[in-house]
């Protein structure tokens, strides 16, 4: 049953392209004024899902709703509620950024003057003021992505669909877009598809991970981390810990242990234990007995990247 209190809802949503199933039985419930991160490897069904949600594609099974209105109906009512930034935004090359935004505003039914006022506001918001009167054909990819975001915002949508919004941006541009998303969360629901997991951790309230057309998990970032927290320990010493490895691997509670280098190229011992309590007590003892001095000892919280790798079947980044 569709719910008008949810910004986005899908019930058994599926899409087949001939014999190929791009999306299978997707059930989502996204609350208003939240940021939902949609993660998945290439070809997992992220863009297909977005296109179904915004009515550019027709579902093979199920339904999707924006504030209770079926997106497959492609009603003008739904389209007034949504803004969409594609992964590779394209524009009319003969128009300037300002002219393009005014056109978009007019398509939303605003008068020319209103559309122009809104266009200037969005140019300011996306940092494109200086390029407002330049032809879009001369825009860099990052500028195009920011103009696409401005165009998605021009109609003041309640739900914003962003497909890889920061993929083409330099670090400063990325930060600026993430700040815009942070600002918008007060008044809009944002459905964000991205590969950059740190961005999801930074701005998203909830995350969905999709693989081969199946939604594997959909919950808050913190709950996800708790659920997938494993007994992993990080130990750093004032010397190479490799001699300890054999003894630790021989412990009955040890699932896996290896020596790796962290970001600062410092040798670190990483241990995955079956029994957290035993490992927590015995690891420092073993090190001390062998004359190693611990400089750091911590229980590792899994990052979203670890969980993502684990859930999508890819090789774990740390182990």
């Amino acid at each position: 049953m569709q719910r008008t209190d949810l910004a986005i809802q899908t019930i058994g949503l599926g899409k087949n392209f001939g014999a190929f199933t791009a999306l299978k039985d997707l059930n989502l419930q996204i609350e208003p004024n939240s940021v939902y991160g949609f993660l998945g490897p290439n070809g997992s069904g992220k863009t297909t899902t977005i296109k179904l949600l915004i009515g550019l594609s027709q579902p093979s099974t199920g339904h999707s709703y924006i504030y209770g209105v079926d997106s497959a109906d492609r009603s003008l009512q739904t389209r007034r509620l949504i803004g969409y930034l594609p992964d590779v935004p394209a524009f009319h090359k003969y128009m300037t950024g300002l002219q393009y935004l005014v056109l978009c505003g007019e398509l939303f039914g605003f008068s020319y003057d209103d559309a122009q006022k809104r266009a200037y506001e969005q140019l300011e918001r996306t940092g494109l003021n200086d390029a407002a009167n330049r032809k879009t054909g001369g825009y860099s990819r990052g500028m195009k992505q920011r103009l696409g975001l401005a165009a998605a915002l021009i109609g003041d949508p309640k739900v914003l669909f962003l497909d890889e919004p920061v993929s083409a941006l330099d670090p400063n541009g990325r930060l600026a877009v993430l700040e815009i998303i942070q600002d918008l969360r007060e008044s809009k629901t944002i459905f964000l598809s991205t590969h950059i997991l740190s961005d999801v951790e930074r701005v998203c309230d909830k995350v969905g991970i999709i693989s081969e057309g199946n939604l594997i998990v959909s919950q808050s970032v913190n709950d996800l981390k708790k659920q997938y927290a494993q007994n992993r320990f990080l130990l750093r010493f004032d010397q190479d810990p490799t001699p300890l490895l054999a003894q630790i691997q021989g412990q009955p509670w040890c699932v896996e242990a290896h020596v790796g280098k962290n970001e600062e190229e410092v040798l670190t011992l990483l241990v995955h234990a079956a029994d957290e309590t035993k490992a927590k007590n015995e690891l420092p003892q073993i090190a001390t007995q062998r004359g190693f001095t611990l400089t750091r000892y911590e229980i590792v919280q899994p990052s979203l990247e670890d969980i993502f790798m684990q859930l999508t079947g890819a090789k774990n980044a740390r182990f």
Partner: peptide, 12 residues
Amino acid sequence: DGITATTLVKPV
């Protein structure tokens, strides 16, 4: 180019 998509997602 994808311009059709960004046009038709608007109330058009």
